[in-house]
């Protein structure tokens, strides 16, 4: 395919699809719970962590990305819950700090690591091995099990956190689990989409899904479908036009979003009613 052997193309294609499915799945939570800024901060933190991983290459940089992303989640979640600081203020501090740290780590990384650093920023079409595809599949399986076991609580949380708490659900636990899910997906997707654009694949397909459906259960099917479509389209565009894969996926996700807004039956109905 595109002059590349299948043993290179297949892992990236499968990885892209899984990243599309996973990111847009957690995107439903991120969009519905208005956590977009939080997701953005976590992806920047993941970039900083992965860059540190390049500087001290003891482990796969993904693990450092996960640690940084989780730290960001657990700083922001409780802070947003209990502190008197506005979330915007906390994010305003976290954004530049995580980017600055990431760039310092990249700058200090040994010369051979420069290519890896660019992969972390923009993603790489060749950045995925079959081993990493299995990691993505394991995360997907974990999310499915989580939804089968605790899906009712997450569903109630998405409706209204206070109502869910008042009806006897441990909403704090569910909220922090959403943060952990997002951190894990952002970190594990970093190699394909890059730290700067994973956010696009988290927010755009799920926002597109909400243009089409009135039922959040259906959004959990339509959102990942759009995410997978954007990932496959971005993968093809990247290989065909020799563009960075993260940017290509983000462009495809944006096209899906623009088409969804334009063709949304909800908006058409609202327009015809006025």
């Amino acid at each position: 395919m595109f002059g590349l052997p299948w043993h290179i193309v297949l892992p990236t294609l499968l990885g892209s699809v899984l990243v599309g499915l996973l990111s847009s799945f957690v995107g439903i939570f991120v969009v519905r719970m208005k956590l977009s800024s939080l997701g953005f901060a976590m992806s920047h933190a993941a970039f900083a962590g992965a860059a540190l991983g390049l500087l001290f290459p003891l482990f796969d940089p993904m693990w450092m990305a996960l640690v940084f992303s989780l730290v960001a989640a657990f700083l922001l979640g409780p802070l947003a819950d209990v502190s008197r600081l506005q979330t915007d203020t906390i994010l305003g501090v976290l954004f530049p700090v995580s980017m600055a740290l990431g760039l310092i780590f990249v700058h200090q990384a040994p010369g051979g690591a420069a290519g890896g650093a660019l992969t972390l920023l923009w993603g790489s079409v060749l950045g995925i091995t079959m081993e990493q595809v299995w990691s993505l599949a394991a995360v997907a399986l974990g999310l499915i099990l989580l939804m089968i076991g605790w899906g009712k609580g997450f569903f109630a949380l998405l409706l209204d956190r206070k109502l869910a708490q008042a009806s006897g659900l441990p909403t704090r636990w569910y909220f922090y689990t959403v943060l952990v899910m997002t951190a894990v997906v952002v970190s594990i997707s970093l190699r394909i989409t890059g730290g700067l654009l994973i956010y696009a694949l988290t927010v755009l397909p799920s926002s597109s899904a909400f243009q089409w459906v009135y039922d959040v259960k259906k959004a959990f099917l339509v959102g990942p479908l759009f995410g997978a479509l954007a990932a496959i389209g971005g993968f093809g565009l990247s290989l065909g036009a020799d563009l960075p894969i993260g940017s290509s996926i983000a462009v495809c996700a944006a096209v899906v979003f623009i088409l969804s807004v334009g063709l949304s039956p909800k908006r058409l109905r609202a327009r015809s009613a006025t």
Partner: peptide, 17 residues
Amino acid sequence: ETPFLTQDVVCAARFAL
């Protein structure tokens, strides 16, 4: 824009049980 059906809003009250 709330993406929940009426019956699901009511059913969610039973989820803790």
